[in-house]
């Protein structure tokens, strides 16, 4: 039974990493948002499973927040933003998809090496969870670095946050207040970024970061 609980936790956390790779792979805006919603669902399942395993009912609340905010509200709002701003439906990447995927694999390997070494004495449940969480964070950062479009950078940012929640759920004893405040800070960040997106659009007729750089008079 113990073994089964652990395996399912691994499966779900691994699924989260897999969805991160899917995010990296997407070249169309609509599918990107759909995958992001999928990642949030997997996160919900993972956190809920942790709640079940750890016998920590407050984690269900975290899972609920993830489901409502990240799987439903934010993807819906983002897709409305995309539609209302008339953003290009295709995503411009830096350096191509293939190399990015390879770099992502490197990131995952690195986080495995680091985390498994660093947490040798920790609870096996938390241990794998932390390694996967770090991978998700790194992949999110990688996504922010390799995308030129502001919306896809937001998605990268949100997926970093998903990784953090996974780590928080895996570590026992994280107070509920912290998780809720993290969730709300993400919401606030989303609102602020959304407002900025509209303002940027108003001024530059585009949300490509290139336009901002051109405005600052930079050469590439």
């Amino acid at each position: 039974m113990e073994r089964f609980l652990l395996d399912v936790a691994h499966l779900l956390a691994g699924g989260l990493v897999l969805t991160s790779f899917m995010l990296l792979y997407q070249t169309r805006m609509s599918s990107l948002l759909a995958v992001f919603a999928l990642q949030a669902v997997v996160l919900t399942l993972s956190v809920a499973w942790q709640a079940h395993v750890q016998n920590a009912p407050h984690l269900y609340i975290t899972a609920g927040i993830a489901l409502v905010l990240k799987a439903i509200i934010i993807p819906y709002a983002l897709s409305r933003v995309v539609r209302s701003l008339g953003i290009h439906r295709s995503i411009e990447t830096v350096g191509g998809i293939g190399p990015t995927m390879l770099a992502g694999m490197g990131c995952v390997a690195l986080s495995m090496v680091v985390m498994l070494k660093a947490t040798a004495t920790a609870n096996p449940l938390a241990r794998e969870d932390l390694a996967f969480a770090l991978s998700v964070v790194l992949l999110g950062l990688l996504m922010m670095v390799t995308r030129r479009n502001a919306v896809s950078q937001i998605v990268g940012f949100m997926s970093i946050e998903n990784g953090l929640i996974l780590a928080a759920a895996g570590a026992k004893g994280m107070p509920l207040v912290v998780e809720i405040s993290v969730a709300f800070s993400v919401l606030v960040a989303f609102i602020v970024i959304g407002v900025f997106l509209f303002r940027i659009r108003e001024r530059f007729d585009s949300v490509e970061l290139q336009a901002l750089d051109d405005f600052r008079g930079e050469r590439r």
Binding site: L110, S111, K117, L138, V145, R148, R216, E218, R220
Partner: peptide
């Protein structure tokens, strides 16, 4: 540009993690 700053942060993080991985 913002993206380059992010790249710097990302690169620094990777280098530090590599350091931990090799050194530990």
């Amino acid at each position: 540009s913002i993206r380059r700053y992010l790249s710097l942060v990302f690169g620094a993080l990777i280098v530090l993690l590599l350091g931990v991985a090799v050194w530990a």
